[in-house]
């Protein structure tokens, strides 16, 4: 364990920073449809008791194959789904029991970037509305022009020109849309962003650009990431810690170098074998 902390780039600052998120024995169930009047006793449980924590400014990678429950964990953290059991705490405060307007302060701190850039932007809204909307909610004091200029700043920050403001999502490429999604997440000035496979729908060349952008932003805005991917290669060189998920359970949690050097779990070895050697 000690060898890994020595070899990681900024070991101490990352490990001593305060804990933002604590997930404890999280389980999520989806009801299966059917049954009398839609009430059903049958369910699937894609997440079966998962525990981990994320510190400020840290990147935690979450890898696992398709269907292993990665997105479900991300959605539970941003409360798009409610946990069946377990606890989620943010800065020591339970957020798995909050709902409705009481979640709003939490939503200002934890944001999400979605897997599918083609679906994550409302096709009927202009970019300035899409990026300005979080500002409207979380910075109600801003006037319309101020929102607009902030949106322009954010776009610039993610590498898009301000004249994108009045255009519609379909006028942008996948990579550009993902940048817009990042700008929307950044707008609330969050501390933690759940990145759900932010690059897996993109071309390889674009993937690197987006990953680099996310790393730059992490520096500039002191962000923590939960970086979800099915691809160990993407996760390993940006994560401080990698969680390996298999069928809803975390089978291994280790810094990436250690994971590579000495995988403890059979499933991890299988994942590693699928990664082209770098």
């Amino acid at each position: 364990m000690t060898s890994s902390t020595l070899s990681s780039p900024q070991p101490d600052s990352a490990h001593l920073s305060p804990i933002l998120l604590e997930v404890e024995k999280l389980a999520v169930r989806y009801p299966l449809s059917g049954g009398f009047l839609g009430r059903s006793r049958r369910f699937v449980e894609p997440v079966k008791g998962v525990s981990f924590r994320i510190r400020a400014r840290q990147t935690v990678g979450l890898v696992g194959e398709s269907g292993s429950g990665k997105t479900t964990i991300g959605k539970a953290i941003v409360r798009l789904v409610s946990p069946h059991s377990g606890e989620i705490r943010y800065r020591q405060e339970r957020i798995d029991t909050l709902s409705g307007a009481r979640l709003r302060p939490y939503r200002k701190r934890v944001q999400m970037i979605f897997q599918d850039p083609h679906n994550s932007l409302n096709p009927r809204l202009t970019i300035s509305r899409i990026v300005g909307e979080p500002l409207e909610i979380h910075f109600p004091a801003l006037r319309a022009e101020e929102r607009r200029s902030r949106a322009a700043d954010l776009l610039q920050r993610v590498g898009l020109s301000p004249d994108s403001l009045d255009r519609y999502p379909h006028e942008f490429s996948g990579g550009q849309r993902q940048r817009i999604g990042i700008a929307r997440a950044l707008a609330v000035e969050p501390e933690l962003i759940v990145c759900d496979e932010p690059v897996s729908a993109l071309d390889v060349s674009v993937q690197a650009q987006i990953v680099n952008l996310l790393q730059d932003l992490q520096q500039d805005f002191s962000l923590a990431y939960l970086f979800i991917s099915h691809d160990l290669a993407v996760v390993e060189h940006i994560s401080d810690l990698v969680l390996v998920l298999n069928e809803g359970r975390i089978v291994e949690a280790a810094p990436p170098e250690e994971l590579y050097r000495n995988p403890q779990n059979e499933y991890t070895r299988k994942l590693l074998a699928a990664v082209p050697s770098l």
Partner: peptide
Amino acid sequence: AQTFVEAAIVTGLS
């Protein structure tokens, strides 16, 4: 079920 609605929820819209 569209992602942009989920995004709106995460943004904190009522």
